[in-house]
């Protein structure tokens, strides 16, 4: 049985009559990395703020490890670690003293655990320096450290790669994977598609506060989305007619020297190939293509018109 560590039920936020988050429901499984993807202003941060109790919930519920944050906030937050937007730290204290602030008030954080986390985020060399001397990347790492101190089983990171260099992003990704493998549910938000694709197991696409869809990243053989490209040497239209004659329901389109057929059945691919070859058409290549997350995201969130016209900041 799958255990859900975080459940959102019909979560809604209205501010001054404007609906920011609209009836949002999803569940995050134990040990998965779950992404919230959406353009800026889609309601990702508002959703995260509601989950961790920074802003009030207009309607709906948030359950963390089975505890409702509206009724039992203290219990629900015990095993949550989070960074909401940038990690803000006490500049006038050292990194270590900052960590001590949180170590003191969270359950069961030993001195060994603090040292372990410092080692993990690679801040040992500067941990006794004042935070005001830290670079953005160092602050980010200290932020990650404070979120991990009490070994949370729900880790929520809002735009976690902000300010990290490529090496830092790579390390973070690996570390989050390690945490997930040990049973931690990780929730990350971002508007950066490629990053989400690399990092997450599942991604919820959010637009205008609504859930558009949830995608599995590793297992994305969604039937409707698999297309087979037959690369043809010779007359493409003739080959197309041939296939349509064979099966009228088949969805075939021409594209240059390629015929694109929408199917996911492996047998029918072989059958189609056989028919083409028997009819004397030269098939020089067959390729199965699934839509990338990026294509889907843009498709889902586009405001009509050509893909290139979509006003979504993809890689800021």
């Amino acid at each position: 049985m799958t255990t859900h560590t975080l459940e959102l039920k019909n979560l809604t936020k209205k501010i001054k009559g404007k609906t920011i988050v609209d009836d949002l429901s999803f569940s995050v499984r134990e040990g998965e990395i779950f992404g919230l993807l959406g353009p800026n202003g889609a309601g990702k941060t508002t959703t995260i703020r509601m989950i961790v109790g920074l802003i009030s919930i207009t309607d709906g519920d948030v359950l963390i490890n089975g505890d409702n944050i509206r009724g039992n906030f203290e219990k629900a937050m015990e095993r949550v670690g989070a960074i909401v937007e940038n990690p803000q730290l006490y500049d006038y204290m050292t990194g270590y003293k900052n960590l001590m602030q949180y170590a003191r008030i969270m359950p069961d954080v030993t001195k060994e655990r603090i040292d372990e986390v410092i080692e993990l985020v690679d801040l040992k060399y500067a941990i006794h320096d004042k935070v005001k001397t830290y670079s953005l990347g160092m602050r980010q790492r200290l932020g990650v450290a404070q979120a991990l101190l009490h070994k949370p089983n729900v880790l929520i990171l809002d735009e976690p790669t902000n300010g990290l260099d490529p090496q830092g992003i790579y390390d973070l990704r690996n570390y989050l994977r390690l945490l997930a493998n040990n049973g931690t549910s990780v929730i990350v938000s971002s508007h950066m598609l490629a990053e989400m694709q690399m990092m997450c197991d599942r991604v919820a696409i959010i637009q205008n506060g609504k859930l558009v869809r949830i995608d599995e990243i590793l297992n994305q053989e969604d039937e409707a989305d698999v297309k087979v490209h037959f690369q043809i040497e010779g007359d493409v239209s003739q080959a197309k007619q041939l296939l349509i004659k064979m099966n009228e329901e088949l969805n075939v389109t021409e594209s240059g020297q390629e015929l694109i057929v929408q199917t996911s059945d492996v047998r029918s691919i072989a059958e189609l190939n056989k028919q083409l070859v028997l009819a004397g058409v030269l098939v020089v290549g067959i390729q199965r293509k699934t839509k990338t997350l990026e294509e889907r995201f843009l498709e889902m969130t586009k405001k009509g018109g050509d893909l290139n016209e979509v006003a979504i900041p993809v890689n800021e």
Binding site: L54, F73, E74, A76, E78, V84, Y102, I105
Partner: peptide
């Protein structure tokens, strides 16, 4: 002003 309040309010305390 510094935003540190966020780090404090997400703890298991009312």
């Amino acid at each position: 002003a510094k935003g540190t309040i966020k780090m404090l309010l997400i703890r298991p305390y009312s």
